[in-house]
Write a protein that binds this DNA or RNA. Structure first.
Length: 439
RNA sequence: GUGGUCGUAGCUCAAUGGUAGAGCACCGGGUUGUGGUCCCGGUGGUUGUGGGUUCGAGCCCCAUCGACCACCCCA
């Protein structure tokens, strides 16, 4: 006898039991449904790409987390790190596609990050993008879609924060930060909701930024104003910066078009302190958080007008959202928002004996033809009690007994496990009776 | 990648450095045409893995794998 191999899974990689898969399938279903309501089409890309396709797009930190290796043909390859870069590559390779192009993509990506709650090395992302539309109207479509997704998932409180990199850059310029400092400043500012104004001020002082500029800048970012008031205030401040003004006007139109959505369970917020880490965003940026549980952002996104051009040489404006699939799964599980009606088997047909197995199979066929998910107990010697127990454990709502008494009269006993009520019915009445019991 | 907490039966957890246990789950019986409750009995462990210290290690030390937490970064 050879030694047992220790069963184990790689750090940050998981199995999905049927129970876990049920939640995931539900989420995929809701997401896909809303996306297709908005006209987005599904697509997929390979899990591996040539390394140089992905390299240099995610910053130095991102690059360290990328799974890279040399394949059997000596090619330098990398595992998909997100869904946006492969999409950009796809667009560059498929220039016959009519623009604007809307697609969605729900697939796993890989990052060699240290795992934590709701954070894994293999995890699913869910991207929705519109390529070939530079207008704020594309942004409005996506933000409206995000709102509808969260509503469809029955999330009670959520905030979709919106900002614009052009506005942010304009402000950084106003406060005399040098252009090569923007990235670092924004990275620190992004922690505002986590470490507070003082924490950010302290960290920026630590990096040697003059405290006058920093405190005035932070005061502006954290002013407690409505979106409209913020825009009015900034029009004044950014008047001489054409690029920033363009961003501001886009924000203005976006907010005015989204106004009527905010009467539901969530709202949109113009948040000047929202920065987002990824470097390819160059216009609007988005992020969504749920009120509970505290799990970080469940959605990120923004405009990346310059990205696709890196592959095609021809600039194609684009804007997209990336839902945090794993975090949404965690939210649904913790808030118990997955409908219990999403079951597996509806009916278990018991096997009375080997001699009567054919009768049980006939009964099961009848139910399956009617679209009722039915399984037969796969053993011809098990006691009925054991078979009922099995049905009960799997929360199968209905069990059928097809014994000699029933078979002799072309009947079966149909039992609702929940109430314990049972009835003997003719085979021709079976489907009707089962449907009735399910109500 | 850095720092910390933890790892004992399928699950949740006990066990002064001195005989590895409980509850639940599982299997069998009470109940050979009916589950959930109840009663009785039973199976189950190289204590994550590999070394070391010790007369003796689940417990102490080192390494390693994994989970979680804080950084980093992000979904």
């Amino acid at each position: 006898m050879s030694k047992l191999i220790q069963p184990r899974t790689l750090k940050g990689f998981r199995d999905f039991s049927p129970e876990k898969m049920r939640v995931r399938k539900y989420l995929i279903g809701v997401l896909g449904h809303v996306f297709e309501q908005y006209g987005f089409q599904p697509m997929d890309t390979p899990v591996m790409e040539y390394a140089d396709i992905l390299e240099g797009k995610y910053g130095a930190e991102g690059e360290q987390l990328m799974y890279k290796f040399v394949d059997h043909g000596e090619r330098r390859v990398a595992m998909r790190y997100d869904l946006t870069i492969p999409f950009a590559r796809f667009m560059a390779m498929n220039q016959q596609i009519p623009l604007p192009f809307r697609r969605y993509h729900i697939s796993p990506v890989w990052r060699a990050d240290n795992p934590q709650h709701g954070r894994f090395r293999e995890f699913w992302q869910c991207d929705v993008d519109i390529a070939g539309a530079s207008s704020y109207l594309a942004d409005v479509e996506l933000l409206s879609l995000a709102y509808d997704v969260f509503s469809a998932l029955r999330l009670q409180g959520f905030v979709i924060r919106i900002n614009d990199r052009r506005v942010l850059n304009g402000l950084l310029h106003c406060f005399s930060f040098a252009e090569d400092e923007y990235g670092e400043v924004l990275r620190i500012v992004d922690k505002l909701d986590k470490i507070g104004v003082e924490g950010v001020a302290k960290e920026m002082a630590g990096k040697g930024f003059s405290s006058d500029h920093v405190s005035a800048f932070l005061a502006l970012l954290t002013m407690n104003l409505s979106a409209d008031e913020t825009i009015v205030m900034l029009r004044d401040k950014l008047a001489e910066n054409a690029v920033a003004m363009q961003g501001l006007e886009d924000l203005s139109k976006i907010f005015s078009l989204l106004k009527k959505k905010s009467r539901g369970p969530g709202f949109f917020s113009l948040d000047l302190s929202l920065a987002r880490g990824l470097s390819y965003y160059d216009g609007t940026i988005f992020e969504a958080v749920v009120e509970k549980p505290k799990i970080g952002s469940v959605l990120g996104g923004g405009r990346y007008n310059g990205l696709i051009g890196m592959f095609s040489g021809k600039s194609i404006p684009a804007v997209g959202l990336s839902f945090g699939f794993e975090r949404l799964v965690a939210v649904l599980e913790e808030l118990e928002l997955v409908p219990t009606s999403i079951q597996g088997t509806t009916v278990l047909v018991t096997i009375f004996s080997a001699e009567l197995a054919h009768y049980s199979i006939e009964v099961a066929e009848e139910l399956r033809k009617a679209g009722i998910a039915t399984e037969i107990y796969p053993a011809d010697g098990a006691k009925l009690g054991k078979q009922f127990e099995y049905a009960d454990k799997l929360h199968i709502p209905i069990a059928i007994v097809a014994g000699p008494d029933e078979a002799a009269q072309n009947r079966v006993t149909v039992k609702a496990l929940g109430t314990g009520n049972q009835e003997v019915v003719e085979i021709v009445e079976l489907v009707k009776k089962v449907r009735e019991m399910l109500r």
